[in-house]
Amino acid sequence: MKIKVVKRYGTAFKDRLYIPAIIEGLKITAKHLFKNVNDIKSVDVLEYPEEQPRDISERYRGLHRLTHREDGSVRCVACFMCATACPSSCIFIEAVERTDGIDEKMPERFAIDLLECVFCGYCVEACPCDAIRMDTGIFSVIGSKREDFVMEKEQLLAQTGSFGDTFSRCHNAGEKQDD
């Protein structure tokens, strides 16, 4: 067997003395300190909330939304894939038979408890119908009590995507396709 001998650092007298290394470290922090004290505006931070983040991209996982079909109705078919994939079990779905002839099944209730959600995006990955997305770009939700953070179906449907694509590109099975 081939053995690779890794050189161990920190055994020299200078290293074991610690003080040169500490001085080196202090030099670095002091440099940052003096630079920033001298010109606070060179610190690249946002003056939130007067300044809002500018770097929210299409891949940013913000607040969830439920997408619509072309006729404006809910796309979700309550297949429970998102609730199954959810690691924090924060999606509460009650399914019901859909009677308008568009599909067979739809959610009666579709709620996400944002206080339990970890914003991992597994629900979006799991959805076979492109019915749930996290592309609203909303990163801050405010409420005064716990119930305010439980997003119900109507609230989720009312959100719009921040990056175009109002309607879902996916076609559910059995649905008519134009292209």
């Binding site: 922090t29 940052h32 300190l33 920033n36 004290v37 606070i40 610190v43 931070v45």
Partner: peptide, 10 residues
């Protein structure tokens, strides 16, 4: 404050 400035925060 110093912690922030050392870490390039405010």
């Amino acid at each position: 404050r110093i912690a922030g400035l050392i870490q390039d925060r405010v």
